[in-house]
Amino acid sequence: MTFFALVSIVIMVVDHRQQHLDDLRSALSLLLYPVQQLTTLPRTGGEWLAEGFTSRRDLQEENANLKAQQILLQAQLQKLDALQAENIRLRDLLDSSIRVGEKVLIAEILSIDLNPFNRQIVINKGTRHGVYAGQPLLDAEGVMGQVVSASPLTSIAMIISDPSHAIPVTVNRNGLRAIAIGTGTSNTLDLPHIPNNADIREGDLLITSGLGGRFPPNYPVATVTQVVVNPSEPFAHVKAEPTARLDRSREVLLVWHGEPTRVESSDCPSDQPDCAAPPAGGG
């Protein structure tokens, strides 16, 4: 007993202070991969059944809806292409670096509620797919978090609402810089150290500033929900609500923003033909 207790304490200290045990952790997580696959079984089974029993009329309806949506999106895309070309031209004029599209990969969340107070998720892509620690994670509506540890087949990501997570943001309206810190509840971020006279209002969209170098710039992060100015205090109390659906998303996007190229088809696993989708929710 004493032996086990001592060994536990030693490896806890080593794991906390150093990175020596990361290999052990990824080896163990490889052994646990079947268990994690088992946990998704009820959901995949349910989806399979639901797909099998969808009625013909539902499918036709859905098909019509999707077609209409596609036409709509295509029309918007035409405009976007023109805007993108213009953007590149303007940036050329300004002689600044261009970053047209980021390489992305869709990952699925294996388990989301490892510990309600930790705000971490496990996703089904790992170092074998090129995932690295510190990689940003998006969903369709905004920034979700970042990868904190990657093993060969799965990785653990920290959600932006984790109390130990902070993300550099700017107000989309005027470029005011701030830092959004998680609070542990999935619908609130805290923006500390904003002066009382700063120009920030309820409803302002906060986007990533890209200043930390970890997140790509211009992705939506949160909308300001509450600004309380108390003249007796040096800073305003500002709260924001994440735009990403932190506790409802099933699929997340992994972004490689160091490379200014789009995803190549060779990076797509054969069972995921849609992984080359452009990053959604670009601000």
């Binding site: 060994v7 536990s8 490896i11 952790r25 646990l32 490892l114 510990n115």
Partner: peptide, 28 residues
């Protein structure tokens, strides 16, 4: 205690906790 400790180590990896945290608690 041995079985409990090993299971705890796996639990640590599964939960993304500090390695040895659940191992210690389960062993006790």
């Amino acid at each position: 205690v041995g079985t409990a400790w090993i299971s705890g180590l796996f639990l640590d990896v599964l939960r993304g906790a500090l390695l040895g945290q659940h191992a210690l608690a389960l062993a006790i």
